[in-house]
Design a protein around this nucleic acid. Structure first.
Lengths: 149, 149
DNA sequence: CTACAAGTTCAAGTGAACTTGAAGTCAAGC
DNA sequence: GCTTGACTTCAAGTTCACTTGAACTTGTAG
């Protein structure tokens, strides 16, 4: 197994479909060299980047947000453990916020829905806006979202 | 304010757009009577149902799943607090599972990504398949999903 | 050298959850 | 009785994150 991986290699090793990898490349989340014939050759460290993408999605970030984060990595040298940790630090708070929301929802579920306060504006389980359960275009101020404009 | 609400009333009171309410009705999540002229008139208790829908979405259920849950409510009488609580009981475990996953992700973020184990199959932060961060068609067995067929 | 698996691009399709627009009808206030 | 805002349906559009298909080219094993 050489130092450069074909798209098929990367797909097998990461569990991410080749079509998705091409899509990520198109969106600038990963990069590849090209062989003389035009085929992609990925440096091995792309696997780490892909792992990060998968993690981040699972946490609830959009590809666009992930791209922004990944852009913060140094372009000229291979990212160190410290680089990665700096990125992920931001997210810890995001995860915490989402956990807190889920805990609020859990108590709201047993308390509010059963008791009836849920039926109106009194029930403000606050804290909106993370993307995992992001607001559609419709505002839901039951959950603390701002009122629709 | 009478006992029957127009779609505009419901939209204002729930914060859910009228177009979304029509969509929910089409999908069988809520129901309405019609006036002679054909306009919708919603019984007041639909607000509770809508609150439930919004909650459930926030937790991560799809509309289809929510429809299944709501179908368990007694059709012939107004649901009691006990009815609602029976529904939401199922979800508590779901929320707990999602919280657990987020906690795993949080530690994975600081430990695995920094250290390098994330780069390959050794890193199995298990437990797949809730819908908030649901798997796309691409499998990601890094996160414990089954391998693609 | 040839077969054929694996790669390429580009356009179009998918599904979830809605929104938007067009074209028309209803209902409430004056 | 008329105006005006709220409502109706239906079809088509939107965003996200990909996948699928067609038509074609590369690269490797025998």
């Amino acid at each position: 197994m050489s130092d450069l991986l074909t798209i098929g290699d990367v797909a097998r090793r990461s569990g991410v479909a080749a079509s998705a990898l091409r899509f990520y490349e198109e969106r600038g989340l990963i990069a590849s060299d090209r062989e003389s014939g035009g085929q992609r050759r990925f440096p091995r460290h792309v696997l780490r980047r892909i792992a990060f993408i998968v993690f981040a999605q699972r946490i609830g970030l959009s590809l666009e947000e992930i791209a922004v984060e990944l852009a913060k990595l140094p372009a000229n040298r291979a990212p160190t453990g410290r680089d990665w940790q700096r990125l992920s630090a931001t997210w810890t708070s995001r995860i915490d916020a989402r956990i807190a929301e889920l805990e609020r929802l859990r108590s709201g579920l047993t308390q509010c829905i059963g008791c009836g306060c849920l039926s109106l504006e009194r029930c403000h389980l606050s804290n909106p806006g993370d993307r995992v359960a992001r607001q559609g275009a419709g505002a839901r101020y039951w959950l603390g979202d701002r009122r629709p404009r």
